[in-house]
Protein backbone atom coordinates (compact mmCIF):
# COMPACT_ATOMS: atom_id res chain seq x y z
CA UNK A 1 0.00 0.00 0.00
CA UNK A 2 1.21 3.43 -0.83
CA UNK A 3 2.44 5.65 1.94
CA UNK A 4 0.18 8.61 1.70
CA UNK A 5 0.94 12.22 2.49
CA UNK A 6 0.58 13.46 6.03
CA UNK A 7 -1.97 12.10 8.48
CA UNK A 8 -3.87 9.98 5.97
CA UNK A 9 -6.33 7.95 8.01
CA UNK A 10 -5.76 4.99 5.65
CA UNK A 11 -8.02 3.78 2.90
CA UNK A 12 -9.50 1.01 5.02
CA UNK A 13 -10.19 3.07 8.14
CA UNK A 14 -13.60 4.34 9.17
CA UNK A 15 -12.30 7.90 8.65
CA UNK A 16 -11.31 7.21 5.03
CA UNK A 17 -12.17 10.18 2.85
CA UNK A 18 -13.58 12.09 5.80
CA UNK A 19 -10.52 13.24 7.74
CA UNK A 20 -9.28 16.83 7.63
CA UNK A 21 -6.22 15.71 5.69
CA UNK A 22 -8.43 14.13 3.01
CA UNK A 23 -9.33 17.60 1.74
CA UNK A 24 -7.83 18.02 -1.68
CA UNK A 25 -6.57 14.45 -1.90
CA UNK A 26 -7.29 13.00 -5.35
CA UNK A 27 -8.52 9.78 -3.77
CA UNK A 28 -10.96 11.44 -1.38
CA UNK A 29 -14.13 10.37 -3.17
CA UNK A 30 -12.82 6.89 -3.80
CA UNK A 31 -11.85 6.43 -0.16
CA UNK A 32 -15.16 7.82 1.10
CA UNK A 33 -17.00 5.28 -1.05
CA UNK A 34 -15.21 2.47 0.76
CA UNK A 35 -13.72 1.16 -2.47
CA UNK A 36 -10.31 2.52 -1.49
CA UNK A 37 -9.44 -0.64 0.36
CA UNK A 38 -9.20 -2.52 -2.94
CA UNK A 39 -5.79 -2.19 -4.57
CA UNK A 40 -5.30 -0.92 -8.12
CA UNK A 41 -5.48 -3.99 -10.40
CA UNK A 42 -2.50 -2.58 -12.30
CA UNK A 43 -0.25 -3.48 -9.37
CA UNK A 44 -0.89 -7.18 -9.95
CA UNK A 45 -0.53 -6.80 -13.71
CA UNK A 46 2.77 -5.03 -13.25
CA UNK A 47 3.92 -7.76 -10.89
CA UNK A 48 3.23 -10.32 -13.63
CA UNK A 49 5.00 -8.18 -16.22
CA UNK A 50 8.02 -7.70 -13.98
CA UNK A 51 8.57 -11.43 -13.45
CA UNK A 52 11.08 -11.35 -16.30
CA UNK A 53 12.97 -8.45 -14.72
CA UNK A 54 15.53 -9.60 -12.16
CA UNK A 55 16.69 -6.40 -10.53
CA UNK A 56 14.98 -3.05 -10.26
CA UNK A 57 16.93 0.02 -9.21
CA UNK A 58 15.55 3.54 -8.72
CA UNK A 59 17.81 6.54 -9.13
CA UNK A 60 16.58 9.34 -6.88
CA UNK A 61 17.50 12.75 -5.60
CA UNK A 62 15.52 15.45 -3.87
CA UNK A 63 17.48 18.04 -5.81
CA UNK A 64 17.40 18.74 -9.52
CA UNK A 65 20.45 18.95 -11.74
CA UNK A 66 22.71 16.87 -9.53
CA UNK A 67 23.26 14.27 -12.25
CA UNK A 68 20.52 11.67 -11.83
CA UNK A 69 20.09 11.16 -15.56
CA UNK A 70 23.83 11.23 -16.21
CA UNK A 71 24.29 8.61 -13.53
CA UNK A 72 21.35 6.46 -14.71
CA UNK A 73 22.65 6.54 -18.26
CA UNK A 74 26.16 5.57 -17.27
CA UNK A 75 24.98 2.88 -14.88
CA UNK A 76 23.13 1.43 -17.87
CA UNK A 77 26.15 1.82 -20.16
CA UNK A 78 28.44 0.27 -17.58
CA UNK A 79 26.21 -2.74 -16.88
CA UNK A 80 25.58 -3.30 -20.58
CA UNK A 81 29.29 -3.50 -21.36
CA UNK A 82 28.92 -7.17 -20.43
CA UNK A 83 27.04 -8.43 -23.46
CA UNK A 84 25.40 -11.19 -21.44
CA UNK A 85 23.66 -8.66 -19.22
CA UNK A 86 20.32 -7.33 -20.43
CA UNK A 87 19.74 -3.77 -19.30
CA UNK A 88 16.61 -1.61 -19.48
CA UNK A 89 16.57 2.11 -18.75
CA UNK A 90 13.23 3.78 -17.97
CA UNK A 91 12.98 7.56 -17.74
CA UNK A 92 9.96 8.67 -15.66
CA UNK A 93 10.88 12.36 -15.70
CA UNK A 94 7.76 13.20 -17.66
CA UNK A 95 8.20 16.97 -17.81
CA UNK A 96 11.95 17.03 -18.37
CA UNK A 97 13.10 13.85 -20.11
CA UNK A 98 16.88 14.06 -20.63
CA UNK A 99 17.62 10.41 -21.22
CA UNK A 100 17.00 10.39 -25.02
CA UNK A 101 19.57 13.17 -25.45
CA UNK A 102 22.14 11.65 -23.10
CA UNK A 103 21.82 8.24 -24.75
CA UNK A 104 22.11 9.75 -28.24
CA UNK A 105 18.59 8.61 -29.12
CA UNK A 106 16.90 11.94 -29.77
CA UNK A 107 14.22 11.78 -32.41
CA UNK A 108 13.72 8.02 -32.05
CA UNK A 109 10.19 6.66 -31.99
CA UNK A 110 8.57 3.94 -29.94
CA UNK A 111 7.02 1.10 -31.92
CA UNK A 112 3.94 -0.86 -31.07
CA UNK A 113 4.29 -4.62 -31.14
CA UNK A 114 1.88 -7.45 -30.37
CA UNK A 115 3.06 -7.59 -26.79
CA UNK A 116 3.14 -3.86 -26.08
CA UNK A 117 5.37 -0.85 -26.72
CA UNK A 118 8.88 -1.79 -27.80
CA UNK A 119 11.67 0.11 -26.09
CA UNK A 120 14.24 1.88 -28.25
CA UNK A 121 17.37 -0.28 -28.38
CA UNK A 122 20.76 1.40 -28.24
CA UNK A 123 22.52 -1.97 -28.24
CA UNK A 124 21.09 -5.46 -28.41
CA UNK A 125 21.24 -5.62 -24.65
CA UNK A 126 20.30 -2.03 -23.78
CA UNK A 127 16.71 -0.88 -24.21
CA UNK A 128 15.48 2.62 -23.34
CA UNK A 129 12.03 4.09 -22.74
CA UNK A 130 11.17 7.75 -22.19
CA UNK A 131 8.29 10.12 -22.74
CA UNK A 132 10.76 11.95 -24.97
CA UNK A 133 10.21 9.26 -27.63
CA UNK A 134 6.51 10.09 -27.70
CA UNK A 135 6.89 13.81 -28.41
CA UNK A 136 6.74 15.12 -31.93
CA UNK A 137 9.21 17.99 -31.50
CA UNK A 138 11.98 18.88 -29.05
CA UNK A 139 10.01 22.02 -28.18
CA UNK A 140 6.98 20.03 -27.07
CA UNK A 141 6.21 20.70 -23.43
CA UNK A 142 4.45 18.05 -21.40
CA UNK A 143 2.21 20.26 -19.29
CA UNK A 144 0.54 17.59 -17.23
CA UNK A 145 -0.79 17.51 -13.73
CA UNK A 146 -0.18 14.57 -11.40
CA UNK A 147 -2.89 12.06 -12.41
CA UNK A 148 -1.92 12.16 -16.07
CA UNK A 149 1.75 11.66 -15.21
CA UNK A 150 0.79 8.70 -13.04
CA UNK A 151 -1.14 7.16 -15.92
CA UNK A 152 1.91 7.42 -18.13
CA UNK A 153 4.13 5.76 -15.54
CA UNK A 154 1.63 2.95 -15.15
CA UNK A 155 1.70 2.44 -18.89
CA UNK A 156 5.49 2.41 -18.97
CA UNK A 157 5.58 -0.33 -16.37
CA UNK A 158 2.65 -2.39 -17.59
CA UNK A 159 2.61 -1.93 -21.34
CA UNK A 160 6.26 -1.87 -22.37
CA UNK A 161 7.59 -5.14 -23.71
CA UNK A 162 10.82 -5.24 -21.75
CA UNK A 163 11.52 -8.95 -22.28
CA UNK A 164 14.09 -10.82 -20.18
CA UNK A 165 15.99 -8.17 -18.28
CA UNK A 166 18.74 -8.39 -15.67
CA UNK A 167 18.61 -4.76 -14.55
CA UNK A 168 15.82 -2.23 -14.88
CA UNK A 169 17.10 1.24 -14.01
CA UNK A 170 14.45 3.86 -13.35
CA UNK A 171 15.53 7.51 -13.66
CA UNK A 172 13.24 9.88 -11.75
CA UNK A 173 12.55 13.63 -11.69
CA UNK A 174 13.60 15.72 -8.67
CA UNK A 175 11.33 15.85 -5.64
CA UNK A 176 9.11 13.60 -3.60
CA UNK A 177 5.77 13.83 -5.29
CA UNK A 178 3.49 12.14 -7.81
CA UNK A 179 6.07 10.33 -9.94
CA UNK A 180 7.92 8.96 -6.94
CA UNK A 181 4.85 7.78 -5.09
CA UNK A 182 3.49 6.20 -8.24
CA UNK A 183 6.56 4.25 -9.25
CA UNK A 184 7.03 2.90 -5.74
CA UNK A 185 3.36 2.03 -5.47
CA UNK A 186 3.16 0.32 -8.86
CA UNK A 187 6.34 -1.67 -8.25
CA UNK A 188 5.49 -2.54 -4.65
CA UNK A 189 4.35 -6.07 -5.41
CA UNK A 190 7.14 -6.63 -7.93
CA UNK A 191 9.91 -5.90 -5.39
CA UNK A 192 12.41 -3.10 -5.92
CA UNK A 193 16.02 -3.93 -5.04
CA UNK A 194 16.61 -0.43 -3.81
CA UNK A 195 17.35 3.19 -4.52
CA UNK A 196 20.59 4.93 -5.43
CA UNK A 197 20.51 8.51 -4.19
CA UNK A 198 22.51 11.17 -6.01
CA UNK A 199 23.70 14.40 -4.42
CA UNK A 200 26.24 17.15 -4.90
CA UNK A 201 28.49 18.22 -2.00
CA UNK A 202 26.83 21.49 -0.97
CA UNK A 203 24.43 21.76 1.92
CA UNK A 204 21.72 23.24 -0.31
CA UNK A 205 21.67 19.93 -2.16
CA UNK A 206 22.12 17.72 0.91
CA UNK A 207 19.12 19.26 2.62
CA UNK A 208 16.90 18.15 -0.25
CA UNK A 209 18.54 14.74 -0.27
CA UNK A 210 17.80 14.23 3.42
CA UNK A 211 14.16 14.76 2.51
CA UNK A 212 14.49 12.12 -0.18
CA UNK A 213 15.98 9.70 2.36
CA UNK A 214 13.10 10.38 4.72
CA UNK A 215 10.80 9.64 1.76
CA UNK A 216 12.53 6.26 1.25
CA UNK A 217 12.01 5.42 4.90
CA UNK A 218 8.37 6.46 4.72
CA UNK A 219 7.64 4.23 1.73
CA UNK A 220 9.96 1.44 2.99
CA UNK A 221 12.22 1.60 -0.01
CA UNK A 222 15.67 0.07 0.68
CA UNK A 223 18.59 2.45 0.05
CA UNK A 224 21.52 0.93 -1.85
CA UNK A 225 23.61 3.99 -1.12
CA UNK A 226 24.50 7.57 -1.91
CA UNK A 227 26.65 8.85 -4.77
CA UNK A 228 28.30 12.24 -4.40
CA UNK A 229 28.54 13.82 -7.80
CA UNK A 230 30.55 16.88 -8.89
CA UNK A 231 32.82 16.54 -5.88
CA UNK A 232 35.79 18.62 -6.79
CA UNK A 233 36.92 20.00 -10.10
CA UNK A 234 40.29 19.27 -11.66
CA UNK A 235 41.51 22.21 -13.70
CA UNK A 236 42.44 20.89 -17.14
CA UNK A 237 45.31 23.38 -17.29
CA UNK A 238 47.07 23.11 -13.94
CA UNK A 239 45.61 19.76 -12.79
CA UNK A 240 44.90 21.21 -9.37
CA UNK A 241 41.66 20.45 -7.65
CA UNK A 242 39.23 23.05 -6.39
CA UNK A 243 35.72 22.91 -5.03
CA UNK A 244 33.03 24.40 -7.23
CA UNK A 245 30.29 23.22 -4.94
CA UNK A 246 32.01 23.37 -1.56
CA UNK A 247 31.06 20.70 1.01
CA UNK A 248 30.58 23.22 3.80
CA UNK A 249 28.89 20.70 6.06
CA UNK A 250 31.13 17.73 5.30
CA UNK A 251 29.43 16.71 2.07
CA UNK A 252 27.76 13.37 1.47
CA UNK A 253 30.32 11.59 3.64
CA UNK A 254 29.23 13.31 6.84
CA UNK A 255 25.58 12.95 5.92
CA UNK A 256 25.93 9.20 5.29
CA UNK A 257 27.73 8.66 8.57
CA UNK A 258 25.11 10.66 10.34
CA UNK A 259 22.21 8.77 8.80
CA UNK A 260 24.01 5.39 8.74
CA UNK A 261 23.65 4.71 5.06
CA UNK A 262 26.43 3.61 2.68
CA UNK A 263 28.35 6.12 0.57
CA UNK A 264 28.92 4.35 -2.76
CA UNK A 265 31.52 6.80 -4.00
CA UNK A 266 32.42 10.31 -5.08
CA UNK A 267 32.57 11.31 -8.72
CA UNK A 268 34.74 14.34 -9.53
CA UNK A 269 33.55 16.95 -12.00
CA UNK A 270 35.20 16.42 -15.36
CA UNK A 271 34.10 18.82 -18.11
CA UNK A 272 34.29 15.86 -20.51
CA UNK A 273 31.28 14.23 -18.76
CA UNK A 274 28.93 17.02 -19.80
CA UNK A 275 30.34 17.02 -23.32
CA UNK A 276 29.80 13.27 -23.70
CA UNK A 277 26.23 13.68 -22.49
CA UNK A 278 25.57 16.48 -24.97
CA UNK A 279 26.88 14.24 -27.76
CA UNK A 280 24.99 11.21 -26.50
CA UNK A 281 28.06 9.06 -25.96
CA UNK A 282 29.23 6.91 -23.07
CA UNK A 283 31.70 8.86 -21.02
CA UNK A 284 33.15 5.58 -19.72
CA UNK A 285 34.34 4.81 -23.26
CA UNK A 286 35.19 8.39 -24.27
CA UNK A 287 37.44 9.08 -21.29
CA UNK A 288 38.55 5.72 -19.88
CA UNK A 289 41.45 7.31 -17.97
CA UNK A 290 39.43 9.98 -16.17
CA UNK A 291 39.23 9.75 -12.37
CA UNK A 292 35.47 10.08 -12.85
CA UNK A 293 35.38 6.88 -14.93
CA UNK A 294 37.30 5.03 -12.24
CA UNK A 295 34.83 6.26 -9.63
CA UNK A 296 31.85 5.32 -11.80
CA UNK A 297 33.15 1.78 -12.36
CA UNK A 298 33.70 1.17 -8.68
CA UNK A 299 30.20 2.45 -7.86
CA UNK A 300 28.63 0.26 -10.54
CA UNK A 301 30.44 -2.74 -9.10
CA UNK A 302 29.12 -2.01 -5.62
CA UNK A 303 25.58 -1.79 -6.96
CA UNK A 304 25.99 -5.15 -8.70
CA UNK A 305 27.25 -6.68 -5.48
CA UNK A 306 24.30 -5.25 -3.58
CA UNK A 307 21.85 -6.70 -6.08
CA UNK A 308 23.47 -10.12 -6.16
CA UNK A 309 23.18 -10.39 -2.40
CA UNK A 310 19.46 -9.92 -2.55
CA UNK A 311 17.30 -12.98 -2.09
CA UNK A 312 16.42 -14.91 -5.24
CA UNK A 313 13.25 -14.07 -7.08
CA UNK A 314 9.94 -14.77 -5.52
CA UNK A 315 11.05 -13.67 -2.09
CA UNK A 316 9.21 -10.49 -1.42
CA UNK A 317 11.19 -8.23 0.83
CA UNK A 318 9.10 -5.14 0.40
CA UNK A 319 5.82 -4.77 2.19
CA UNK A 320 6.87 -6.75 5.21
Amino acid sequence: MEEVPHDCPGADSAQAGRGASCQGCPNQRLCASGAGAAADPAIEEIKEKMKTVKHKILVLSGKGGVGKSTFSAHLAHGLAEDENTQVALLDIDICGPSIPKIMGLEGEQVHQSGSGWSPVFLEDNLGVMSVGFLLSSPDDAVIWRGPKKNGMIKQFLRDVDWGEVDYLIVDTPPGTSDEHLSVVQYLAAAHIDGAVIITTPQEVSLQDVRKEISFCHKVKLPIIGVVENMSGFICPKCQKESQIFPPTTGGAEAMCQDLKIPLLGKVPLDPRIGKSCDKGQSFLVEAPDSPATVAYRSIIQRIQEFCSQRLPEGENLVGS
Binding site: E3, G24, G146, T176, S177, E212, F215
Partner: peptide, 15 residues
Protein backbone atom coordinates in the same frame (compact mmCIF):
# COMPACT_ATOMS: atom_id res chain seq x y z
CA UNK B 1 11.62 19.12 10.98
CA UNK B 2 14.03 20.50 8.38
CA UNK B 3 14.61 17.00 6.96
CA UNK B 4 10.95 16.16 6.72
CA UNK B 5 9.89 15.20 3.21
CA UNK B 6 6.87 16.93 1.76
CA UNK B 7 5.37 13.88 0.07
CA UNK B 8 2.41 15.52 -1.58
CA UNK B 9 0.61 14.84 -4.78
CA UNK B 10 -0.55 17.63 -7.08
CA UNK B 11 -3.88 18.75 -5.59
CA UNK B 12 -2.42 19.36 -2.16
CA UNK B 13 0.47 21.31 -3.66
CA UNK B 14 -1.98 23.41 -5.67
CA UNK B 15 -3.94 24.26 -2.55
Amino acid sequence: QPDEAVVWRGPKKNA
